[in-house]
C-alpha cells in the first residue's frame, strides 16, 4: 500500500465521518443512539473524529428496557460524562406505566416494547434523525438497508420502497413527523469493529471479557442467572467462565464460554468462530423473518 492509500479501517472511518457530518449539517434535531455496546462505542469515537474540537452537536439517546446488564448502564453513563455529552434515557418501564407500551399477556421480553418507547422519545424531542450502530453483516434484513433509512410518520421502514442511494450523496430530506435512521457502520463487520476498538484503544464494558458467572441452559444457550431470570425449580445452575459476544437484554443474551480477556483475544476468537454474532441472540431466532418484522415496525 502506498502512502496515498487507505487501509480498510481508514476507509470505513472516513466513510462514517462523512455520514456523521452530513447528519449534523442537514438535520435540525438529530440524536445518537448510545447503549454502551461495542458498536455504539465505536460510533462515539467516530463522532469525536467528525466534530472535534467542537462538542458533539447532538444528544445521546438510550432506551432502557429495564433488563439491561448493570455493567452496560454504568459504562453508558460514565462514557457520556467523559465526553461531556448530553445523555437522554427513556425507560420501557415508564412507557408501560403511561400506557404507551403495552405488553402482551404473559410477555416477559422487553424487546418489542422498545419500539413504542423509542417512537415516543422521537415524538417527545421532535428528533428528525437517529444515528444508530447497526451493521449490514449482522442479519439478512439489515443487509438490505441504506445508510440513510427513511421512516414514515409511524416510524415504519418500507423495504420495497427505499430511496436509491448513489455515490456518497445522501438524500436527507424529511417532512415534519417523518424521520431518518442513519447507520454510519453499515459497511463494518464484527471484526472491523473489534479491530477499530483495538486501533483506537477504546474502553468497553467488562462483560465483553471473560468472567465467572452463574448460568442456566435454555434452548441451547447459556443464559445468565439474575433476579430477572432465576433458575427454575431443580434446574441445574453452572458456574462458567464466559463472556458476551453481542449484548441484548440480560434475560435473552447467550453467554459464550470463553477465556478471552483482552481485545486481542477477542479478535483471535472471532477469527476462529464458527457461528455469527447474532447466533447467540434468542430474539432473532424466533422466526425466519424476525428482524424484518421488527424493523418494519420501527425497531432500531
Amino acid at each position: 500500500m502506498n502512502s496515498y492509500h487507505l487501509d480498510h479501517l481508514q476507509y470505513l472511518e472516513t466513510e462514517a465521518i462523512h455520514i456523521m457530518r452530513e447528519v449534523a449539517a442537514e438535520f435540525e434535531r438529530p440524536a445518537l443512539l448510545f447503549s454502551g455496546g461495542k458498536d455504539s462505542i465505536s460510533l462515539l469515537r467516530l463522532a469525536e473524529k467528525a466534530f472535534r474540537p467542537s462538542d458533539i452537536p447532538m444528544p445521546l439517546l438510550n432506551i432502557d428496557t429495564g433488563h439491561h446488564f448493570p455493567e452496560l448502564n454504568e459504562f453508558r453513563d460514565r462514557r457520556a460524562k467523559e465526553l461531556g455529552a448530553k445523555l437522554i434515557v427513556r425507560k420501557v418501564e415508564d412507557a408501560i406505566g403511561k400506557g404507551i407500551a403495552v405488553p402482551r399477556p404473559g410477555e416477559i421480553s422487553r424487546n418489542q416494547l422498545q419500539i413504542p418507547t423509542l417512537l415516543a422519545a422521537v415524538e417527545e424531542f421532535q428528533f428528525d434523525c437517529l444515528i444508530g450502530g447497526a451493521r449490514r453483516d449482522e442479519e439478512k434484513a439489515r443487509a438490505k438497508e441504506r445508510f440513510f433509512s427513511f421512516r414514515d410518520s409511524f416510524g415504519q421502514w418500507d423495504p420495497k420502497n427505499q430511496r436509491p442511494e448513489i455515490w456518497n450523496i445522501y438524500n436527507a430530506r424529511v417532512n415534519p413527523g417523518e424521520h431518518m435512521r442513519v447507520f454510519p457502520l453499515s459497511n463494518w463487520t464484527e471484526m472491523d469493529v473489534w479491530e477499530y476498538i483495538k486501533r483506537e484503544k477504546l474502553q468497553v464494558p467488562t462483560i465483553y471479557f471473560s468472567h465467572q458467572r452463574k448460568c442456566v441452559r435454555r434452548n441451547g444457550q447459556w443464559l445468565p442467572v439474575s433476579d430477572l431470570l432465576p433458575p427454575k425449580d431443580k434446574e441445574p445452575v453452572k458456574e462458567l467462565v464466559v463472556r458476551v459476544r453481542t449484548i441484548g437484554d440480560i434475560i435473552s443474551t447467550g453467554m459464550v464460554e470463553s477465556p478471552a480477556d483482552s481485545v486481542d483475544d477477542i479478535i483471535a476468537e472471532i477469527a476462529a468462530a464458527r457461528v455469527t454474532e447474532r447466533g447467540s441472540r434468542a430474539d432473532d431466532k424466533a422466526s425466519e423473518a424476525a428482524m424484518e418484522d421488527r424493523k418494519k415496525a420501527g425497531y432500531f
Binding site: M1, D7, H8, L9, Q10, T189, I267, A273
Partner: peptide, 11 residues
C-alpha cells in the same frame, strides 16, 4: 471469517 492481522485494502 479468515482474518489477517495486518491492514488490507477494501475492494
Amino acid at each position: 471469517m479468515p482474518h489477517t492481522p495486518h491492514p488490507v485494502e477494501i475492494l
